[in-house]
Amino acid sequence: MQTSVRPAAATPGVRRAARGRSGQWAAWAFLAPVVLYLLVFYAYPLYRNVELSLRNYTVRSFVQGDAPFAGFGNYAKVFADATFGPALWHTVVFTLVSLAFQFTIGLALALFFSKSFRLSATLRALFLVPWLLPLIVSASTWSWMLNSDSGVVNAALGWLGIGPVNWLTSPDWALWSVIIANIWIGIPFNLVVLYSGLQAIPAAVYEAAALDGANGWQRFWRVTFPLLRPVSAITILLGLVYTLKVFDIIWIMTKGGPSGASTTFATWSYRLGFGNLVPSFGPGAAVGNLLIVMALVFGLVYIRVQRRQALT
């Protein structure tokens, strides 16, 4: 099973002495466009972003290019900002709670679908829908469903005798609202990857466990769960990297509000850079760079884990 892309240049094979320098020329000629592309459209924007964070930019100095150097002033400003603490906390809560539910529900569904039944393939395909929809579609649908006065969620709660909840407009609930929507969007990814992980466990292992008299519960905890651990680790780490940078859902549903109650690093950075009439690009870029450091830490752990698994 292939859960993730392995850098394939490491393909073992006989290195041929015959194809020497000219072979390398051809190889790099084919790579040249992508290398150039990475330099111009990845490395340079990232460099500009670092530069933005180290200078005092305004819209005018953007065009004229004479922004004064500010050193780490923007970072100091960001750390001292009253938004910093809550934004960090919201980012952590959003990421961890989303992941915990996405993974648990995804795993339960993967187990449910692991033995095929009538229509199972079709239903499993339908489960992909939330993941394929444009995020603005999902986010605006959830916004209307969670509307305080006319939303279907409050109508259902009212039917159960629970009073209306101000999902998107109350500071107590806004973060939970975007988490609920994000869990919904993330379940398919977990389901599909964990399902393929389950399919890779040989049936013979289960037969042996059944012969030894293991019941369903024991089979899960003693056989399935340990054998699924490598795939689980990869799913969670990848989920971590991608949940940290979630922006669209939060911005469209709550704009990080009300009064910052659902602001994460991603939406804070956007608000600083683009959300106000007078943009503060410097602090915005600084927050973005903090976010990138967080994402890269987990990204490198992910690559390490994956490499180790590829070796064993």
Binding site: P45, L46, Y47, N49, E51, F62, K245, G273, F274
Partner: peptide
């Protein structure tokens, strides 16, 4: 690694 860079960061660099 490039896949993991948050979009907001790319957006700000591109904007500049």
């Amino acid at each position: 690694i490039a896949q993991m860079i948050p979009g907001i960061i790319m957006a700000m660099g591109f904007y500049a």
